[in-house]
């Protein structure tokens, strides 16, 4: 099919705008990376525009020596893995009976779950429940709160219904397969795409959250990475030992420059794991989102 003149103009204009958007999204990301490995004084003078200048890895060296970050990292990895496993276990199992046509009492459960989407007790009543359970200042507050959302159960249920043939389940049942067996040896292996999507949703959510920690934790040793980041990036509380090197810190603006350099490095160090996991899981995104959308 040959292109008309109008089409060529259209494509040129369209590609131009898409490219503008592309640059707007990409530029800040590249800038942070470049600034994190550049000479901090060149960055503050505005000389680093796109590519790094005065290459140095001093910032990363200092970040890696900062104990709080390691503690935060350790806690976050634990909260993310444990939290995601719990979330997956609850979501994948709850969705299964709801996906079966012959499940007696299905509607009662659906109503029970749906109500939780529209009504919640709010901050204080939830806080009081957590307090009453003695979960404040424990890891349980960090891995149990927000473990399941009905929205995700619906996505998984829809996936079970649309992507796993009913005949397969019936055949297995005729062979004397129990529901538990059916679930572990037929449903789960076939549900890999939706498991990947759920793991991503829950995992990224856990990795990035600071709210539950802000509300329920006061023990610094339990702080997740995001709480440490908040101190560094937002409250501007940087352990000054981190900035100390002989003689260098007499000048106040040197100190600010160094603090800013550390911020760039901290951003990279904390975001890297998520960005790295993302290409592996990306192929499942669209599928997962579409499955969820069918129900609407």
């Amino acid at each position: 099919m040959k292109k008309s003149k109008d089409d060529i103009i259209f494509e040129a204009v369209n590609t131009f705008f898409v490219t503008v958007f592309f640059i707007i999204v990409l530029y800040p990301l590249i800038f942070v990376i470049s600034a994190s490995i550049s000479d901090p004084s060149l960055v503050s003078q505005g000389k680093v525009v796109l590519l790094p200048k005065g290459l140095n890895f001093d910032g990363y060296r200092r970040v890696l020596e900062y104990d709080d970050i390691w503690i935060g990292y350790r806690n976050t990895i634990f909260y993310t893995i444990a939290g995601t496993l719990i979330s997956l276990a609850l979501t994948l199992t709850a969705a299964y009976p709801l996906a079966r046509r012959d499940f007696v009492g299905k509607n009662v459960f659906v109503i029970y779950f749906t109500i939780t989407m529209f009504f919640s007790g709010g901050l204080i009543p939830t806080y009081m429940v957590v307090k009453a359970l003695g979960m404040r200042n424990t890891v349980f507050s960090q891995i149990l709160l927000g473990a399941v959302s009905f929205m995700n159960i619906v996505i998984v249920r829809t996936f079970y219904q649309t992507s796993i043939p009913e005949e397969l389940q019936q055949a297995a049942q005729i062979d004397g397969c129990s529901y538990a067996r059916l679930f572990t040896s037929i449903i789960l292996p076939l549900a890999k795409p939706v498991i990947a999507v759920m793991a991503l949703f829950y995992g990224v959510g856990r990795w990035n959250s600071y709210f539950t920690a802000l509300i329920y934790l006061s023990d610094r040793n339990l702080y997740p990475l995001q709480m440490i980041l908040r101190e560094i990036l937002i409250i501007n509380e940087i352990n000054m030992e981190m900035l100390m090197t002989e003689g260098e810190l007499e000048v106040i603006h040197k100190r600010v420059e160094l603090a800013t350099l550390l911020k760039y490095c901290v951003i990279i160090v904390s975001t890297l794991p998520v960005i790295m996991a993302y290409p592996f899981l990306q192929k499942y995104f669209v599928k997962g989102i579409m499955v969820g959308a069918i129900k609407g």
């Binding site: 990035n208 959250s209 990036l233 937002i234 998520v274 960005i275």
Partner: peptide, 9 residues
């Protein structure tokens, strides 16, 4: 996939 803390930072 950037966290809110990093975004605001």
């Amino acid at each position: 996939f950037i966290s809110t803390v990093v975004m605001v930072g």
